[in-house]
Amino acid sequence: MTTPMVKSESVHKRFGGLEVLRGIDLEVQRGEVFCLVGPSGSGKSTFLRCINHLEKVDSGRLSVDGELVGYREVNGRLHELRDRDAAKKRREIGMVFQRFNLFPHMTAMQNIMEAPLRVKGEPAERVRERALALLDRVGLADKAKSYPRQLSGGQQQRVAIARALAMEPKLMLFDEPTSALDPELVGDVLDVMRQLALDGMTMIVVTHEMGFAREVGDSLVFIDGGVVVESGHPRDVLSKPQHERTKAFLSKVL
């Protein structure tokens, strides 16, 4: 059996007195589109941020591709990772944010090329070619020289996806990628994500787009109050929720 891409065992996280994650258990398989849904404040975004160590896990075990996140295990003892080593691991995980977070002082092209050039130190010519190909893939080949503020929200988010893909990650994290978009711009972003799923990328998607989850998702978990309430195939969970809280939530969003 191959190791799962992400394995979470009883992951806890607290901010001060507030316990946001109270024991998350789940597995994300390779090539899977894994959807996290739940009410706001349920901890789903926090969990996503734990996966690439933007937040530190307090207890439990969280591993990506068989390796612990944020720690190194030597002779049964955990050692915190140095910033440099944590950064190295983040290269392999792409992240797309709700508010895009493109670098406003750089063009779309520069946004995409920055990390491969500075972090991986790849030759400029190769990075340029790949960046152009990625822009083409997200349907923005003509926007290479545009600055973020000259682009619509949907275009910015597609550039952000291309920027994450430029690092050739093995896992992509999407934190409510369409929540900040005007409704008519959502479709273009979802199309890009759908294509990415077809290409076999492992994706973890925090979303309120139940249509997308049902159509593209391979697994879905419903998180509330920092625990996994229900999980299964999106079609089953969305149409035949077993748990009361899931039913109550779905009746509001569907």
Binding site: N52, K89, I93, M95, F97, N101, F103, E114
Partner: peptide, 8 residues
């Protein structure tokens, strides 16, 4: 955050 996530 975005630049950390890119591994910078």
């Amino acid at each position: 955050e975005a630049s950390s996530a890119l591994g910078m």
